[in-house]
Design a protein around this nucleic acid. Structure first.
Lengths: 333, 333
DNA sequence: CTGTTAGCGCGTTCAT
DNA sequence: ATGAACGCGCTAACAG
């Protein structure tokens, strides 16, 4: 049997309610300094930790969030989870993890909300808007979206993908590139649209005419990046801007196969930064994004929501900057 | 207010105790088929889900496990978590995630055990034996180690790193290699020792004399792999066996810099398999390991433990096999 | 300033 | 075959 509040109270010679008040640090209540000390001391010697199940039942508040991710091997999500876990821990919340499976009924959101009684949800789903909205509505708990938007959902923390592509293009233009290809993400996706907008905006700002033939849909896989790059080869770009590290890597493989030198013949930039960037050859120049911070801010926002505050919307997180490695260089032509 | 058992009971016109018996599917109890139907129907229409907090409090059993990882961006752990989550979900358990921080007192294990009342722990820590044993002892819950051993801890699910290096060496020897370098992991680490043993054993089996100068400590980072490879260059190996994908990638970068062709001049093999292997140039030949299965088996083992069974030890998980890509080829000399 | 009391929602005796 | 009553450990209203 583990030590419970009653044990602490008995040892301190007080009632459980008094012990509870002391341990919870009630500011409004007045408690004699001497009793407070005795209770604290008892709790320490007994190594007391409150039973969160009982507390959650009583308070109708589990101090637990659920985080739902599509995959774990995506470094952006891994980093976001890490940040979220740091923030929740800091505020005394725990984090229940689950992946979004294919279950039709009793979605993961409802299970966490109704079953586990989480106080809120961190949602990093890639599902389409309609499905996601329905499932989140049924969950009936506050939620914050991670790196995506959802029409009608007010709370989201996203990376500023538009700004990221802009500074990537700036970097390439500064190196003299004008024929810059873009490996685009999933058409219709929120971030894909933002990136394309940033790409076009930056080109325009530099007086370069947008050429649709320099954009190919790559999705988010190495194979997709490779296929898109093959298609773009005929356009003879001097630089390529990938949507993610993975697509950039796929493109690099195709460039290698084609006998093109990186960066002498073609420069390559990837979005986000992760250890894998240093594992490519040549090491990939990237736009570093605050992915861990995104998780932290999302958790902070969720905490504010469940604690009844009405937080301001969080602006898209600007990139941390370019990480210049070896995959970019002066334009050859 | 969410629907509770009493709501279901009222709608069905029975007592809560009856509703409880029906919904928990008590085998010993006899319940009239007609009432059972009515209760089930009521639960369905009210979209009832039992409050796990209340149930956990009552049963002294939260149906929740804690999983503790050092990092999330390690693909082996990410995959293991994914597998563990699948298995726990399948058996009606939830998964609380946390990383092992640097907190001295009130370790993450104790917090999960005493505070969150998890029924068991999945431990993927890299901490040294002494610290880990003390903290786990204080947690007082069943636990299963993930991909590591701990003296005196009976339950662990590990990958067979020894067999993995063995088949990697077999593959290289079959290609005619005899000067095979090894980028070793953290000295003293469990898996590092296993890999070295497998390497030495396979060499011996093929009648190749073990040369300590062909082994360099690389740790588990790209930089470590690069440094070790630089050191080994003087030995003119025709093949390199990395401890992980990351170290192999670091080594490949050094080979590129040195103007050596992969695989014409030097073949490279990495242990574990992950998408990043296809992102390297040339694509990396690897030994695929059942990392996700490891997580599943660990969760299954933990479930057996907390449910009072006395499961057999799980043997080290053999590799799934070689994934031959482009980084290995016939020995040049 | 502190003790008494009453549940939170559920599973489980013990009755009937 | 079903209902009544109790308590898991905790917090919060109400007394005093």
């Amino acid at each position: 049997m583990r030590t419970k509040l009653a044990d602490v109270a008995r040892l301190a010679g007080v009632d459980v309610s008094t012990a509870s008040r002391v341990l919870r640090g009630e500011a409004t209540q007045r408690i004699r300094e001497e009793t407070r000390e005795r209770v604290l001391q008892s709790a320490r010697t007994l190594n007391y930790a409150p039973n969160q199940l009982a507390r959650g039942l009583r308070m109708a508040r589990s101090a637990t969030f659920g985080i739902v991710v599509p995959q774990l091997d995506n470094p952006v999500f891994a980093s976001a989870i890490f940040g979220a876990e740091k923030a929740t821990l800091r505020h005394g919340y725990s984090l229940l993890i689950a992946h979004r499976g294919s279950e039709a009924t009793d979605s993961v959101y409802q299970r966490m909300s109704h079953g586990n009684r989480v106080d809120g949800l961190l949602v990093a789903s890639l599902d389409d808007d309609r499905l996601l909205r329905d499932e989140l509505e049924a969950a009936q708990v506050p939620f914050v979206l991670l790196n995506r938007q959802l029409a009608g959902a007010p709370h989201a923390v996203v990376l500023d993908s538009r700004a990221a592509t802009e500074i990537a293009v700036d970097h390439l233009v500064a190196l003299g590139h004008r024929r810059i290809a873009h490996l685009a993400g999933r058409p219709g996706g929120f971030n894909a649209g933002e990136r394309l907008a940033g790409y076009r905006g930056a080109l325009k700002r530099h007086g370069i005419t947008f050429d649709p033939a320099l954009v190919a849909v790559a999705g988010y896989t190495a194979e997709g990046g490779a296929a898109a790059m093959r298609q773009l080869l005929a356009m003879r770009p001097t630089a390529v801007l990938g949507a993610t590290l993975v697509t950039a890597a796929g493109a690099m493989a195709v460039l290698h196969e084609a006998g093109l030198q990186i960066p002498q013949d073609v420069s390559v930039v990837g979005l986000h930064d992760a250890p894998v960037a240093t594992m490519l050859y040549p090491q990939l120049t990237t736009v570093q994004m605050p992915t861990e911070r995104m998780g932290e801010l999302a958790a902070d926002l969720l905490i504010a929501l469940v604690e009844g505050r009405t937080p301001d919307a969080v602006a898209p997180l600007p990139p941390d900057g370019m990480v210049i490695r070896s995959s970019t260089g002066p334009a050859s032509i």
